[in-house]
């Protein structure tokens, strides 16, 4: 059995990735799981300057899921390269850096700066955070703007470029096409769904930010559907994510069209979840004589 997969130009030892925003900068999980066994780690979204993020409360649990409104808190690209990247370089695991900007030029500058850092293997462009102010969301919801911002980043970096799509659109396949046309090497989908929860006693929103992003198994069927829609529309590889809690969930995403999968909220429930899921995928494949994860990608029978 060969577990390696190619996500465009990015070669992974296996198809299991830790999703951005759920795995810190990797070191948080040291002592809790074997990071070196993962195909890749996608670090918490970075910007040119550090961000403080939103005030608390930032998270609330909902049925089979959670809302978060962290607000892209991060230490900034320079601190990441200096203080966090050396830790990640010790592993075979590939390092995908999630990043964002507040303007097209910031996106391009961030990409350029990350591209020269030793130990970064791919960039994941976040154009889909639901916790940014109104106006920012057009990067991920207006296909013309998506095309422009991805094109600008494409010119700024030769690295494998993954674009993370928002599910908060009417037609995600159209957004996928815009990113592909602009030069993306791969797509990550989905980011969280914009959501809200209210305390009926105080009549106040449960999050200080009022709205947040819904993640966890509650969103999985939505995410599977979106991966399937994008798989039929674009040629570039897809990284499927959204509520993956088990190997069975991961395989469902692959059948829908994902080349690799990312484990997110499950890391919070069990820090060893991603490694357990990888083990489960191996067991599933060997029991059925499947020699490569590629045999599963898009193999749903409709």
């Amino acid at each position: 059995m060969n577990l390696s997969v190619n996500v465009g130009k990015l070669k992974l030892g296996n198809p299991v990735i830790a999703a951005s925003g759920t795995f810190g900068y990797g070191e948080e999980y040291s002592g809790f799981t074997d990071i070196g066994r993962l195909g890749a780690v996608t670090v918490k979204g970075l910007s040119l300057s550090p961000r403080e993020g939103n005030p608390p409360p930032r998270i609330v649990e909902t049925p089979a899921g959670m809302l978060n409104a962290v607000g892209l808190q991060n230490i900034g690209i320079d601190s990441f390269i200096k203080d966090k990247l050396p830790f990640l370089r010790q592993f075979e695991t590939r390092v995908i850096v999630n990043f964002f900007g507040d303007s097209i030029s910031e996106y391009a500058e961030a990409a350029a700066r990350l591209s020269s850092a030793e130990g970064v293997h791919a960039l994941e462009m976040n154009i889909s955070c639901p916790n940014k102010q109104a106006g920012w969301s057009i990067f991920g919801t207006d296909p013309k703007v998506t095309f422009r911002v991805v094109s600008a980043v494409r010119k700024a970096t030769a690295m494998p470029l993954i674009v993370k799509l928002s599910p908060n659109v009417t037609d995600i396949a159209m957004m996928a096409k815009a990113a592909e046309d602009a030069g993306a090497d791969a797509l990550s989908l989905i980011n969280t769904l914009t959501a809200m929860a209210i305390d009926i006693n105080t009549r106040r929103p449960k999050l200080a930010n009022i709205t947040g992003g819904l993640s966890g198994p509650a969103i999985r069927p939505v995410a599977v559907r979106m991966v399937w829609e994008c798989y039929r529309k674009v040629k570039i590889p897809l990284i499927g994510m959204g509520g993956i809690m088990s190997a069975e969930d991961a395989i469902e995403f692959m059948l829908a069209g994902a080349t690799a999968v990312a484990v997110g909220t499950a890391n919070f429930v069990n820090p060893g979840a991603a490694v357990d899921i990888l083990q489960g995928i191996k067991t599933f494949m060997s029991a059925r004589g499947i020699r490569s994860p590629r045999e599963l990608t898009g193999a749903v029978r409709c």
């Binding site: 998270i59 609330v60 919070f268």
Partner: peptide, 22 residues
């Protein structure tokens, strides 16, 4: 005390405002 998702410092959900920042 704060609502927590992970408990290990990854989710950034349980922050408190301090003189040294969040």
């Amino acid at each position: 005390e704060q609502n927590m998702a992970c408990g290990i410092g990854a989710c950034l959900g349980c922050i408190v405002n301090t003189t040294r920042g969040y």
